[in-house]
Design a protein around this nucleic acid. Structure first.
Lengths: 211, 211
DNA sequence: TAGATTGTTAATCGATTAACAATC
DNA sequence: TAGATTGTTAATCGATTAACAATC
């Protein structure tokens, strides 16, 4: 039924959501594609094209209702319902994620952290308990888990990924510097911090080269 | 002199670098665009086109020398020379970055962390000292700083950005959930974790919708 | 030399922008 | 109704892929 929506459009949706949240906080009730285009520094054409992939959210002569558009994009992104998330690897990065309250607003609820370090056993981070890895199987049996965030060293990440997949978890938020082949029913979103850093390095270096 | 290279190509370069590093570790000496395309799941055509933006790195009938190509891409990305980095915000995320040893391999050296919490004063993270924010100006006067990573709450991030820009720092690695207008000689690379999470949410939700 | 594989041009595909009729 | 602004089609632009001559 649904026509295929291009990856480029999908990648832009979170950014729209972000701006619409800001507009809501400012108390703005309506916005035109022209005004939004000035704020976001994209063309008004692109905004209208992007949104029209998903439906007709605006009104001729009026523009878009901020609250309505915000909520509709939320539904498109699927952040209107809760995803339970576990975090594998309770180092600084894992704990940073556990403490990041914004995720809850995005429909993600951290239900447990895991680690191999016995010193962390039973401690809490962001109000969530840290479990030992050997408790993982049992935990997943008793609590529905939709996403596993992998915040452990590269050397253990592949193994951990295979483990959570074997337990039936279908989505991975990967922070480990690794590439892997996954069963096609498993969704993976990777955050490659060192790619981002290399990109920054390029931008800096390129600027130096210009001058 | 240099023709303009498209952003899409530049974004792909870190990934090439990553795979070439792996090949080096495996001890592979040479690789053809065809073989690399199978590994990376991109077309051989794209690989050859991308690389040719920067020079002729291969040899007909032979392919590419892994070590040579790796090093050349390193130069293109500018990670063959050191960038000194400070981290503003010494919470879990800041400390995670300070402890991430891969950055050094990418030419980034964390020279100091900063925070406002007196409890952290003088402590170390990843072998690097945590300073108080009021020491920032003096620190930057005595030590060259090329990049500031912003790992503090959104509410303080803009102020911090303006502060480091006023001190003459020209590059920002931003982890705060904010948008800002910058002087055009300042380079910013933002990591929007919640955008990544929303994208994952979309992928999960879309998969559910398919079935 | 023959085989392999690049560098590069040409063809295709997809994404962005412009334009404007529809409509609130 | 007149003005504003969308939804949507058409035109442009850029990026990807295919093809192949050059060459190691």
């Amino acid at each position: 039924v649904d026509k295929q929506i291009s990856p480029a459009v999908i990648r832009r949706m979170p950014r729209y959501y972000r701006y619409l949240t800001e507009l809501l906080e400012e108390g703005t009730e309506r916005i035109s594609s022209g005004e939004l285009s000035r704020r976001m520094k994209v063309t008004a054409s692109q905004i209208r094209q992007d949104l029209n992939n998903f439906g007709e959210f605006g009104q001729q002569g009026y523009g878009y209702n901020v609250q309505y558009l915000h909520d509709e994009i939320g539904k498109i992104l699927g952040i209107d319902h809760t995803h339970n998330m576990i975090i594998i690897g309770s180092g600084h990065l894992g704990q940073a994620l556990a403490n990041y309250s914004n995720f809850k607003k995005r429909g993600f609820e951290v239900v447990a952290l895991f680690d191999v370090d016995p010193a962390l056993k039973g401690k809490k981070s962001g109000g969530v308990e840290i479990h030992m890895m050997e408790e993982l199987d049992e935990f997943v049996k008793s609590t529905p888990v939709h996403v596993a965030a992998l915040t452990l060293p590269k050397a253990y990440a592949r193994e951990a990924a295979e483990h959570v997949i074997a337990l039936g978890i279908k989505a991975i938020w990967n922070f480990a510097h690794m590439e892997m082949d996954l069963p096609e029913d498993v969704t993976i979103e990777s955050v490659h911090l060192s790619d981002s850093l290399m990109h920054l390095s390029y931008l800096i270096t390129d600027k130096e080269r210009q001058s």
